[in-house]
Design a protein around this nucleic acid. Structure first.
Lengths: 279, 279
DNA sequence: TAGCCGCGATAGGTTATGCCTATGGTCCCC
DNA sequence: GGGGACCATAGGCATAACCTATCGCGGCTA
């Protein structure tokens, strides 16, 4: 089936007369009849009843006609949308993010962006930090948000990188945990603890990040379960007395029984960067 | 542009590789390249960037790709919907009505119908009585609702007609009108009054109906403004001290200042009929 | 009832175009 | 510098979309 079939079919459905429809389409009547016949053959049922020179839509034809009209209109708007995008009048801004950004920073930023650029449709892909670099290189996303420290030297020259905000780190743990009694927690207190990793968007970025921080403090962290959502994370922490490290900006209202304690090592900071492909 | 172009374009957008996409489409690579080139030429902008054998979507290409995917999916569901309709598994019941039926009887009937036939999508066309007869003859609607008395002798044999309900007639008028003081009103009281016609769905059925009734009572009605909606009707009645005849089943909650008075001629009845094309 | 008219279907020829194979031109990588 | 991956170009072929001419069938009119 081709759009030609739909165009011809809609013309006949409008006119209910093959000759007139053919004239409108600048086509000879037999050609139009043949195309409609081919369409009906492919569909496997009749679209029109032709009795005594009277043409009428069948029930199935009625249903197909309204859908066909919609499809033809959609094709028209799709080409217009793409044309606008090509001319820069409108289009998509594809944004890559990581979970903390999605929740903590993006909503307000997107509101501002949409107010300033009503014709641009922002599309957010929460895909983890490392995925973003690949998609930036392939121009699959226009801008990415990620922790500054996932970028190696080569990537910092390849891409355009801008630091946005910094924040302290903290620990999320059960309020019955022995460390919960303290106001702040030191990394070294955690050497014997079990870390719960967050595997959001199918990436182990969070896990790798915690491992690197612990290694920097001189011990090698031991990991327990992996949680694939925040809700899941809280249940696992409550159930296993595990804990997790997060940047403060990722901290959201916590369920009762779960608490946040800042890390005493204030020199450890989480730096969020905005990355674009300068090409 | 043809669906072929969209199919090929989506395949290349999925693979970002002409050769692999061509293989998936069971097509030689040059053929695919040519079709994409033709599509880009017709659209007037590039969908892909081809640098150093690397294929990537342009911004416009991204926009067009998601729309093209939608369109192809729509074509698929449209053929399935039409197929279901052809096999009687689903489809449309196209109903012609007149305004009183639309408001007074249809909502409940449609609820019942939809509960009994969830796969059938009822489509209501409020098009006036006479339009319905033409559309019934052309199988444009499956069933029509109209006053029994619009059907002439030939039409009562051509179509299958079933009387549904009867009701009395009444007058709608301003509560300051001198006739509003009476509990019932006789037709003959109205000989010197000005009638306001309701021109709903662009038909003058209501006007003709009132004229016929008045003629039956032995006088020729004089008509004032035409109202094209119920709200409009009430304003006109209030403003011009006109009045209108309606069947009681068309009576709905009236705004303050507007009242309904039954007609004393109880032998004048409004009979609503359901009409189908038996063919 | 004969004959004309309107309309869609059929028949047969022509042309456009979608597809093929073979080959060329780049860039990347070893 | 040679080879491989990849897309574009060139040229030939076959399908199919289109054309004109004609048929067949109802409906309408004289």
């Amino acid at each position: 089936m081709e759009l030609r079939h739909l165009r011809y079919f809609v013309a006949v459905a409008d006119e209910l007369n093959f000759s007139r429809a053919a004239a409108k389409l600048h086509l000879a009547q037999p050609s139009l009849s043949a195309q409609i016949r081919d369409l009906e053959k492919e569909l496997g049922f009749a679209l029109f009843t032709r009795i005594a020179g009277r043409v009428a839509l069948t029930d199935a034809g009625h249903v197909f006609a309204s859908d066909a009209r919609d499809i033809l209109a959609d094709v028209k708007t799709a080409t217009q949308r793409a044309l606008d995008a090509a001319h820069g009048k409108a289009g998509e801004l594809r944004i890559g993010t990581i979970a903390p950004v999605t929740f903590a920073l993006l909503p307000a930023a997107l509101r501002n962006f949409h107010a300033a650029n009503p014709a641009i449709n922002a599309v957010v892909h929460d895909i983890g930090a490392r995925n973003q670099l690949a998609k930036l290189a392939a121009d699959e996303i226009h801008v990415g948000f990620m922790p500054l420290d996932v970028l190696d030297e080569a990537q910092r020259t390849q891409f355009s990188v801008k630091s946005l905000v910094q924040c302290e780190l903290g620990v999320v743990l059960d309020d019955q945990h022995k460390l919960a009694a303290r106001k702040t927690v030191s990394l070294l207190d955690l050497a014997e603890e079990t870390f719960i990793g967050l595997q959001l968007a199918g990436t182990d970025d969070h896990l790798k990040w915690m491992r690197r921080i612990c290694k920097g403090a001189g011990f090698s962290a031991s990991f327990g379960e992996l949680a694939d959502s925040l809700d899941n994370l809280f249940s696992v922490i409550a159930a296993t007395r595990g804990l997790t490290l997060i940047p403060k900006l990722a901290k959201r209202p916590l369920p009762s029984g779960i608490v946040y304690r800042p890390l005493r090592e204030r020199e450890l900071r989480y730096t969020l960067a905005m990355v674009t492909n300068p090409k």
